[in-house]
Design a protein around this nucleic acid. Structure first.
Length: 318
DNA sequence: ATAATATGGTGAT
DNA sequence: TCACCCTATTATC
């Protein structure tokens, strides 16, 4: 489910709840052996690099998590003041139970606008000890001072050495959400490849953190054909795309949603909550008319995923 | 009960 | 390019 913004958001929330604290670490499902040796140690800091989540436990140990397509995280509070803590969390946290709409500035109850961040799920009912018993396949549970987190369905949840961590960073392209992510590097990595730009944007060694939604939407916003090769893509266009991507993804971190449309291209008027159906230009809109030109949005598989684009607005060569 | 679906990634062919 | 791995939810028989 997650693209890079989800992971950065997740790292921030983990730090808010666990940074510097002694944590209980377990794997109710039993498939993360590393839990044993981390149990009772100190949670250092969580950080995101592209779609990878890294949590330090002391200088020599990291937990590496990749949510993949199905991975989800649930946060919760327990104990006597759990309700108060949750209420307080609403005012500060990007994750307040399921009510992320608060941070989107949405506040309302319109179900059409409450698509929030699907990687966050309701943790469930409290058990006898105040904490919900693990439900389903919980790969990793962290328990702190009144806070807990459950992780289900990740592609990766494993121990990393500092070498592993360095190797990962080495492999990944620049991340638009990180301070050390530089646009020039993105441009260079795109322009030395003959591969279609629509495939390059999904390649995490070219740019780290883009997924299938941002790929389609970014190309549309810059009127770039997905079928144009990286090498032939105009440098100025790529720089503009990078800058735009940073804006879009930062908004994604803030709100937990991917909204890429300009107000004038939406059906619901300005200053109203952005509905699910108004959030994107082309993603999952195949067969519908393009918001700008009315041409039928098309889809075809590229880089192993369904690509969506407007054949009229995205036909230019730059 | 079974299938289809999903914002991802790896490793073999 | 394909097979395969993760899991929960929703739709269909």
């Amino acid at each position: 489910m997650p693209e890079g913004h989800t992971i950065h958001r997740l790292a921030a929330e983990l730090n808010r709840r666990f940074a510097g604290r002694t944590v209980g670490v377990s794997s109710p499902q039993g498939r993360f052996d590393g839990a044993r040796q981390l149990d009772g140690t100190t949670f250092g800091r969580a950080e995101a690099d592209g779609k990878h989540l890294l949590i330090s436990f002391g200088p020599e140990r990291w937990v590496h998590v990749h949510l993949g397509l199905f991975g989800r995280v649930a946060f919760g509070a327990f104990g006597p003041d759990a309700a108060a803590r949750s209420a307080a969390a609403v005012s500060r946290s990007p994750y307040a139970g399921r009510d992320i709409s608060y941070l989107s500035g949405i506040a309302g109850t319109d179900p059409d606008t409450e698509d929030t961040d699907a990687s966050v799920v309701d943790p469930g009912e409290a058990g006898a000890d105040g904490r919900p018993p693990p439900r389903g396949a919980v790969r990793l549970r962290l328990v702190g001072d009144g806070d807990y987190m459950d992780l289900r369905g990740p592609t990766a949840c494993e121990l990393f050495t500092p070498d592993d961590r360095r190797a990962l960073t080495q492999r990944l392209g620049p991340d638009p959400l990180r301070r050390d992510g530089h646009g020039e590097e993105f441009v260079a990595r795109v322009r030395r490849r003959r591969v279609d730009i629509g495939a390059l944007l999904m390649d995490q060694t070219v740019v780290a953190g883009i997924g299938n939604v941002y790929r389609a939407e970014l190309l549309f916003r810059h009127a770039v054909s997905p079928f144009q090769s990286g090498r032939d893509t105009d440098e100025a266009t790529l720089i503009t795309m990078w800058d735009d991507l940073r804006v879009l993804m930062r908004a994604g971190v803030r709100t937990g949603r991917i909204v890429t449309t300009w107000p004038e291209d939406r059906e619901r008027p300005r200053r109203r909550p952005v509905t699910r159906s108004d959030a994107h230009y082309v993603y999952k809109r195949d067969g519908l008319p393009c918001r700008r030109c009315g041409a039928e949005v098309r889809t075809q598989v590229m880089a192993g995923r369904n690509l969506f684009w407007c054949p009229h607005d995205q036909s230019r060569s730059v």
